[in-house]
């Protein structure tokens, strides 16, 4: 009987110790985890539509690649088809460029130079100025 009581006490102590460890870990996590901070890179994205009207988006972001930065830009919408090279953008702010119809497409520029990467692989560097321009050949 005494042994059972001792054993129960040990079990309770063990489970209590586990609960204490879990609580301590939770506190540790809440105190020391990396908190989200405002994006550390300042970039601009300019969209030039078919009528050559320009819309500018300024944002602070931690995005590594352009696609994520575009997703974070408030008011900027885009869509396209996914391919093995990432998204091929065909619609920006509701305006679609269809190469098969009128040889038009959305051209991407970074700091004035034509982007050599798709939006999924175009790196974002602090101070970058991106342009997305409706282009018809």
């Amino acid at each position: 009987m005494e042994n059972t009581s001792k054993s129960s006490k040990k079990v309770i102590l063990g489970v209590a110790a586990l609960v204490v460890v879990i609580a301590a870990l939770a506190i540790l996590y809440n105190v020391f985890r990396e908190k989200p901070v405002e994006g550390s890179k300042s970039i601009t994205i300019e969209v030039v539509n078919k009528e050559e009207e320009s819309t500018n988006y300024q944002l602070k972001t931690d995005a590594e690649y352009l696609r994520q930065a575009m997703e974070e830009a408030e008011g900027l919408t885009f869509s396209g088809t996914e391919s093995e090279y990432g998204m091929m953008v065909d619609t920006v702010n509701g305006e679609t460029a269809d190469y098969s119809v009128d040889s038009s497409y959305w051209a991407f520029y970074v700091n004035g130079d034509y982007c050599n990467n798709g939006i999924d692989t175009q790196p974002v560097v602090d101070g970058d100025a991106f342009s997305i321009v409706y282009t018809a050949e």
Binding site: I22, L28, Y29, E34
Partner: peptide
């Protein structure tokens, strides 16, 4: 610290 929530799940 970054993985503590997953350690708790594991435990």
């Amino acid at each position: 610290v970054a993985g503590i929530p997953w350690d708790i799940t594991h435990g």
